[in-house]
Design a protein around this nucleic acid. Sequence first.
DNA 1: AAAATATATGAACAGATATTCATATATTAC
DNA 2: GTAATATATGAATATCTGTTCATATATTTT
Lengths: 104, 104
Amino acid sequence: MPKPARTADGLDERTASDLSELFRTIGDTSRVRILAAVMAHECKVGDIAEAVGNSESAVSHHLRHLRQMRLVRARKAGREVFYSLDDDHVVALFKLGLEHVRHG
Amino acid sequence: MPKPARTADGLDERTASDLSELFRTIGDTSRVRILAAVMAHECKVGDIAEAVGNSESAVSHHLRHLRQMRLVRARKAGREVFYSLDDDHVVALFKLGLEHVRHG
DNA sequence: AAAATATATGAACAGATATTCATATATTAC
DNA sequence: GTAATATATGAATATCTGTTCATATATTTT
């Protein structure tokens, strides 16, 4: 099989791309707030929309994005869908990020 | 003084905005690679440009952005400018990010 | 002094992306 | 069955952002 394309700094292109995509996903104010809401406790879409002050449609779009990046997970209950964190990497990332912005 | 505007999830708007801005800064493939290069060892602009395969101008723009977010720091030596990490939050963020993308 | 080199910067353009709106799907209530 | 509710989705649009190009600044060399 072909060698992965390597940049001179030791990060292959695929990894750099994946990594940046992950951070880009968290790099949106609405999604940060959606994640913070979901982080506090399992939430259904409507409640998230109200909490972050976005339309349900916009939130739904964001949630799909977050799902695709495996940051949140959906649990269907009747006609409602409850979202929770998929793992706790996000919590750790938030903590580090906060350390930096609150004067790092 | 006025209370900071709070979202229902406990993140005030300013914090959510700052946090997302930080992640957005790392959420670009070129900047990820620039950071990786600088992370390995202090680099001057030209070398970074070559390492990541971007123009020096583009890299310079990115470096300004990274400087403004206090992610990298510049040291001037003659007509060259050497960049290094400003602190090690980025290293920790990269580690966590990699854990997530390499099967989260 | 001028020429050459390294980096920075502003403006402009191209491509990406968040939000809105209209509509679709799924589930429950009647 | 139909009506109502919750969420999802596609397309369109408006905004944001990365890169390029031209040019500016700073430093060294001759």
